[in-house]
Write a protein that binds this DNA or RNA. Structure first.
Length: 452
DNA sequence: TCTGGGGTCCTAGGACCC
DNA sequence: TCTGGGGTCCTAGGACCC
């Protein structure tokens, strides 16, 4: 593979430049937008991230068993109704165990399956250590999710060696220094780099340069294309579009007719057309903060539901204040014991960040939403954020100044002494956690947008 | 013991105004 | 009095990602 990739790299000078078609259906003849010259983008993806990290951690703490060598998964606890597979080992893959399926059904497929509980704090540390290695190769890196980074290696050949050699170096350094394996995809934009890193796993470097799209990407089934999920795949297959190549070579006007803008997005991706920059930080761009949980038991009365909403709101509001935002929209979501979901939202006249204020609205929304059936899942989300340094308090709203002072005090107590330092007495003997979701002092989870 | 949680973006339909 | 059309805002739900 190595020699093959190095050989392929010889073609790099003869790139056809990216062309974006974005005027489908406008009646205007094709407009060719020259995007950029010669970019080099890496996409680095940890192989079975949670499971690898768990294995390495256990080995380092004297466990003789390497989870990666046996059928194993990282998954939640079915007793508290969190029992789904979050990550699986390669031997588990051989039993057709899928990420997202229930632990119950995974065990049915493989009775000797080893199950490890997730440890998000550990994963966050691994993710950071991994990012720190990448930062040595370029000042411009983007964390796309907990286990994925993009690196813009454009013009970095002068400091390091050639891109393919560097990709191998990164892969081997992560393995040798941190103990887990990664795949590195190399190309001229993010979509091709990302598709390349997914090719054959684990511990591999792949390229999909523009002149390799047909050979390496078009032959793949349509489901393998980034942003083609179950629903889109079904629609495409019903029109005999079965491979990425079928989509790439289909008339984009027809795609747009039945898949709208999402159709154009995936048609562009199928053709390797994508020109978004590698962004150092997404943190300034957050759109909303939410927290939801599947309750350990069905909630059947409003008082308990209010308490769950409070526990969710505690973390949402604390994260909101931590990022120095206020919100103008509160939404509540609910899933009943028959797995039907619904949601309800409300705009508020003045932006807020108080736990009590958000909770009060969440409870009102809940009352308007709930029909009385048993509930298994509740969520609180705030959005339409604005900076909290200039809050306009409406004359008609309650004066929340005292509440804000109280929140500040609790936030600082928790910051100094841990999240457990203070909690509301209403949670005593409730069987519920007083603050659901990641603890407040955890570092912000790096989230990705659905587009690159 | 069957089915998580955190995000983003898009669309359709209704209300409302001109 | 009735009808129509365009624009904007709001809401709920769906699709996708890891």
């Amino acid at each position: 593979m190595g020699l093959y990739a190095l050989f392929k790299f010889g073609k790099i000078a003869s790139f056809t430049r990216n062309i974006c078609f974005d005027n489908i259906g406008t009646g205007i003849p094709w407009r060719k937008v020259d995007t950029m010259g010669k970019r080099i983008i890496f996409h680095i993806d940890v192989n079975s991230a949670y499971l690898s990290w768990e294995s390495v951690h256990r080995l380092q703490h004297g466990d003789p068993l390497d989870l990666r060598t046996v059928p194993s998964v990282v998954g939640g606890d079915p007793i508290t109704r969190h029992g789904i597979v979050l990550a699986k080992s390669i031997p588990a893959k051989k039993y057709d165990i899928q990420t997202g399926e229930s632990i119950f059904s995974a065990k049915a497929k493989c009775p000797e399956l080893v199950i490890a509980r997730p440890n998000y704090g550990l994963y966050m540390q691994c993710s950071r250590a991994f990012g720190n290695i990448l930062r040595e190769y370029s000042p411009l890196i983007e964390q796309y999710s907990i286990d994925e980074y993009f690196v813009d290696f454009t013009n970095m050949e002068r400091l390091h060696c050639d891109p393919i050699k560097t990709a191998y170096e990164i892969k081997d350094r992560v393995k040798n220094e941190l103990g887990f394996t990664v795949n590195v995809g190399v190309s001229t934009n993010k979509i091709l780099a990302k598709m390349a890193s997914e090719l054959i796993k684990p511990d591999k470097v792949h390229t999909i340069f523009p002149d390799e799209i047909a050979e390496k990407m078009w032959v793949l089934p349509i489901e393998e294309l980034f942003m083609v999920g179950r629903a889109t795949a079904k629609k495409l297959r019903s029109r005999a579009i079965n491979t990425i190549g079928d989509l790439a070579n289909y008339d984009p006007r027809l795609i747009k007719l039945f898949l709208k803008s999402h159709g154009m997005l995936v048609w562009n991706y199928a053709n390797g057309i994508e020109c978004s920059p590698v962004r150092e930080s997404r943190r300034t761009m957050i759109k909303g903060i939410g927290n939801s949980t599947t309750t350990p038991f069905d909630v059947e009365d409003a008082i308990t539901a209010y308490l769950v909403l409070l526990s969710l709101t505690e973390t949402v509001a604390a994260r909101l204040r931590q990022t120095e935002y206020c919100a103008r929209l509160v939404s509540v979501s609910l899933r009943n014991n028959e797995f039907n979901s619904c949601s309800h939202q409300r705009k508020i006249a003045s932006a807020i960040d108080c736990t009590n204020a958000i909770h009060e609205i969440a409870c009102e929304l809940f009352d308007e939403l709930w029909k009385g059936e048993p509930i298994r899942h509740l969520g609180v989300r705030v959005s339409e954020l604005c900076k909290n340094d200039f809050i306009q308090l409406s004359l008609f709203e309650k004066d929340y100044e005292k509440q804000r002072a109280m929140d500040r005090t609790i936030d600082s107590l928790r910051e100094r002494f841990g999240t457990n330092a203070v909690f509301r007495s209403s949670f005593i003997n409730s069987g519920l956690r007083f603050a659901t979701g990641g603890t407040v002092d955890d570092e912000e989870y790096p989230m990705m947008s659905s587009q690159l």
